[in-house]
Simulated scan of single mutants.
Amino acid sequence: MSTTRSAHPSTRTRSGRPPRQRHAQAKEHHARTQAAAGQSGKGGKTGTRRWSHEVMEKSDALDLEKGIFRNGSADEIAQSLKRSSLASRRRKGTPFQSAMSMLNFYINRAGKNLPKTQRTTLERAKKKLREAFGRTP
């Protein structure tokens, strides 16, 4: 009488490969599909997805003046954010919450790429924004 021994279901799949081999196989498949789509690895410029840009364009974010974060003083940025948040019908929270959220979103997405001078301007804009909405601590 022969006894056939089957592998435990959690260790093998229909392909009969153990988990580590399946993982390596998945990585290879991912690399092939990225190459076929014209996307390079991390940090590549060709075919990269800009989800943060899509958030700014399509979400319930504020309709901001173009280039306001790059070309303005702290006071101009705060006043522009206030105007945009009061005028917007797409926001979900209060005007102050929406304006501060967009400012923080921009700072966080820029990360280490944000020059120190611009970062200090944007941090001052936060203070000005609090003052503009009467929320000084």
Results as ranks from 00 to 15, higher is better:
Gly72Asp: 00
Asp75Phe: 07
Asp75Gln: 09
Glu76Met: 05
Glu76Leu: 04
Ile77Asp: 00
Ile77Thr: 11
Ile77Lys: 00
Ile77Asn: 01
Ala78Lys: 00
Gln79Glu: 11
Gln79Ser: 12
Gln79Tyr: 02
Ser80Gln: 03
Ser80Tyr: 00
Leu81Glu: 05
Leu81Asp: 07
Leu81Val: 10
Leu81Lys: 00
Lys82Ala: 04
Arg83Asp: 11
Arg83Tyr: 06
Arg83Gln: 12
Ser85Tyr: 06
Ser85Asp: 08
Ser85Lys: 01
Leu86Lys: 14
Leu86Thr: 03
Leu86Ser: 03
Leu86Gln: 13
Ala87Ser: 14
Ala87His: 08
Ala87Asn: 12
Ala87Pro: 01
Ala87Val: 04
Ala87Gly: 12
Ala87Cys: 06
Ser88Cys: 15
Arg89Gln: 15
Arg89Asp: 10
Arg89Met: 12
Arg89Phe: 05
Arg89Thr: 10
Arg90Leu: 10
Arg90Glu: 06
Arg90Trp: 02
Arg90Asn: 11
Arg91Pro: 12
Arg91Lys: 02
Arg91Leu: 13
Lys92Tyr: 09
Lys92Thr: 13
Gly93Ile: 05
Gly93Val: 04
Gly93Asp: 12
Pro95Asn: 02
Pro95Leu: 13
Pro95Ile: 03
Pro95Asp: 05
Pro95Glu: 02
Phe96Ser: 01
Phe96Val: 06
Phe96Ile: 03
Gln97Gly: 11
Ser98His: 01
Ser98Tyr: 04
Ser98Asp: 14
Ala99Ile: 03
Ala99Lys: 00
Ala99Arg: 00
Ala99Gly: 04
Met100Ser: 12
Met100Asp: 08
Met100Gln: 08
Ser101His: 09
Ser101Thr: 11
Met102Pro: 04
Met102Ser: 15
Leu103Thr: 01
Leu103Ala: 07
Leu103Val: 00
Leu103Asp: 00
Asn104Ser: 13
Asn104Ile: 08
Phe105Leu: 15
Phe105Pro: 11
Phe105Gln: 11
Phe105Val: 14
Tyr106Ser: 03
Tyr106Gly: 10
Ile107Tyr: 03
Asn108Glu: 09
Asn108Cys: 11
Asn108Met: 12
Asn108Lys: 12
Asn108Asp: 09
Asn108Ala: 13
Asn108Gly: 08
Asn108Pro: 04
Arg109Thr: 11
Arg109Val: 10
Arg109Glu: 09
Arg109Ser: 06
Ala110Phe: 05
Ala110Leu: 07
Ala110Gln: 11
Gly111Thr: 01
Gly111Phe: 06
Lys112Phe: 12
Asn113Val: 02
Asn113Asp: 09
Leu114His: 06
Leu114Tyr: 05
Leu114Ala: 10
Leu114Met: 10
Leu114Ser: 07
Leu114Asn: 02
Leu114Cys: 08
Lys116Leu: 14
Lys116Ala: 15
Lys116Met: 13
Lys116Glu: 10
Lys116Ile: 12
Thr117Pro: 00
Thr117Lys: 15
Thr117Met: 11
Gln118Tyr: 07
Gln118Gly: 01
Gln118Glu: 07
Arg119Lys: 13
Thr120Leu: 14
Thr120Ile: 10
Thr121Gly: 07
Thr121Val: 15
Thr121Ala: 09
Thr121Asn: 08
Thr121Met: 13
Leu122His: 06
Leu122Val: 04
Leu122Cys: 08
Leu122Asn: 05
Glu123Gly: 05
Glu123Thr: 06
Arg124Lys: 15
Arg124Ala: 14
Arg124Cys: 05
Ala125Arg: 08
Ala125Pro: 02
Ala125Val: 13
Ala125Tyr: 05
Ala125Glu: 00
Lys126Glu: 08
Lys126Trp: 03
Lys126Gln: 14
Lys126Arg: 15
Lys127Tyr: 07
Lys127Trp: 04
Lys127Val: 10
